[in-house]
């Protein structure tokens, strides 16, 4: 049956399975019992291998198009969750984090794989920008899940975790934006563009800045701040998935 497939079709099939199988193991991480972390870790390792496979097919670091970017976003969210999951066994935190990781991994399959890297993207600044950007999404994602757990359970430790992870994410996001500006200047001779994508990306930075300040304001800390932090992640997701689909962002002629 598989012998009829072209090389391109075979690569697509491998890509689909290399996402679905880790997503399955991630999901099994929700099971009760001592093996749940091991199963999640297995998903993480398989996911890592799938990213390496995409890099092999692409002939470069696979952070240049939507399929690979969303897959990497899921991977960083999984890594951040995994790093903290031993210390925090809140069911809300666990279920929301694993659901987010699995959904993001599967969402990567909504986008076709592209096996060409634009010459504008072949610079370390671009790679650094993308790597840090999706790492920050990982922090923001798990932060939002900790926020949901706090809102559901009222445990102040979760609120603190939400804030800390958002602070890490914001710092990494800041460096990602700076690296992105340097890349854009090297590639196109400008470090800012007036497009809805750039504005939404900056909006996201301001919004998390707002959340990090809000926590120190009397009357706005606690639950209202947690909701703002959660909204921040939704804005970050919208900046990636919504701009260009719901809000039009036509390609810029450089």
């Amino acid at each position: 049956m598989f012998s009829d497939l072209s090389a391109e079709e075979a690569r697509t099939l491998i890509t689909i399975f290399s996402i679905l199988v880790p997503a399955l193991f991630y999901g099994m991480g929700m099971m009760e019992g001592k093996h749940s972390r091991t199963l999640f870790l297995l998903g993480l390792v398989l996911h890592g291998l799938s990213i390496i496979y995409r890099g092999y097919v692409l002939g470069g670091i696979p952070l240049t198009e939507k399929h690979d970017n969303v897959s990497f976003m899921a991977f960083t969210t999984a890594v951040v969750y995994w790093r903290l999951s031993a210390a925090d066994t809140s069911p809300w935190y666990q279920v929301t984090s694993i659901t987010a990781v699995s959904l993001l991994a599967i969402a990567s399959l909504l986008f076709p794989t592209i096996n060409t890297i634009s010459p504008f993207m072949r610079t370390p600044w671009f790679t650094l920008h993308m790597f840090l950007l999706y790492l920050s999404y990982g922090f923001f994602g798990v932060s939002a899940c900790a926020g949901i757990a706090y809102l559901a359970e009222g445990n102040a430790d979760r609120e603190r975790l939400q804030y800390q992870l958002a602070a890490y994410g914001w710092a990494v996001y800041t460096i990602a934006l700076v690296a992105g500006s340097v890349w854009f200047f090297i590639a196109y001779g400008m470090y800012w563009l007036w497009t809805s994508r750039e504005l939404f990306t900056t909006l996201c930075w301001f919004f998390f800045g707002l959340y990090l300040h809000q926590r120190y304001l009397k009357g706005l800390a606690g639950r209202p701040a947690a909701i703002i932090g959660l909204l921040g992640y939704l804005i970050a997701l919208f900046a990636y998935f919504g701009v260009g689909t719901i809000i039009p962002a036509p390609p810029v002629q450089f």
Binding site: W194, L210, A249, P250
Partner: peptide
């Protein structure tokens, strides 16, 4: 006041949101 900085962030978020909708609407 940190509250002033906070409201600046709110203001920028609203303006950026408006701009991101206004730009593609008047391409």
């Amino acid at each position: 006041s940190i509250r002033t900085a906070y409201w600046f962030f709110v203001f920028f978020a609203v303006i950026m949101l408006w701009g991101s909708i206004a730009l593609p609407g008047n391409l």
